[in-house]
């Protein structure tokens, strides 16, 4: 005798609908591999490539509170926008993000990053200048490397001064694929 799937699903939906969760998350497939998607009531808070749910859950609980539950409905809007992005039919995300646990500097870097438009690129030094600290290119690189919401906050659009891809926490293959998708050179979905 096990918990009926319909009962399990009802509980997960109800927990979110009653506003009892610090974080709702779900796992989903995408053209760049499996993703873990997570949201708080304030907005999208995590997109993880190659998710290891156990480690992710601990991190989410540390950042936002222990009431972390797999519950698909709150992340459905994000899932739909990502699907459209991978299909090439969406260029901007219309979703709030939750960066509350991040240090002020990293938040300001990510807010500036969000202004880099689809199909364009910026450099680490350029972003550093835009956050008011032209010599902080390396710190900007560190802040982008720990970007909790890749794709939506487009750190794949930041390249080295020479235009080289440099690095990407999700792997250079993914960075290349996302840039080619945005230039119309690659179909992902």
């Amino acid at each position: 005798m096990t918990v009926p799937a319909s009962l399990d699903e009802r509980f997960r939906d109800r927990a979110a609908a009653d506003g009892l969760l610090d974080v709702a998350y779900d796992l989903t497939d995408s053209p760049v591999g499996p993703l873990l998607l997570a949201a708080t009531e304030r907005g999208v808070c995590r997109i993880s490539f190659e998710p290891e749910p156990e480690r992710e859950l601990d991190a989410l609980a540390r950042w936002f509170g222990a009431r972390v539950l797999r519950s698909p409905k709150p992340v459905d809007p994000l899932r739909r926008e990502l699907d459209a992005y991978f299909e090439g039919t969406r260029r901007e995300f219309d979703l709030a993000v939750d960066l509350t646990p991040l240090p002020a500097f990293q938040r300001s870097v990510l807010e500036e990053l969000a202004r880099v438009r689809y199909g364009e690129t910026a450099t680490y030094g350029g972003l550093a200048t835009r956050v008011g600290n032209p010599r902080a290119a390396r710190a900007v690189g560190g802040a982008l490397n720990r970007n909790p919401i890749p794709i939506v906050l487009p750190c794949h659009r930041v390249v080295g001064a020479s235009g080289s891809l440099v690095g990407y926490a999700g792997g250079l293959e993914r960075k290349r694929a996302l840039l080619e998708l945005e230039r119309g050179e690659l179909r992902l979905a």
Binding site: D8, E54, A66, L69, R70
Partner: peptide
Amino acid sequence: APPFERFYATHKEEVY
């Protein structure tokens, strides 16, 4: 406390 998902997954069958 562990993430709620882990608490739930660990105890749901027995509680049910």
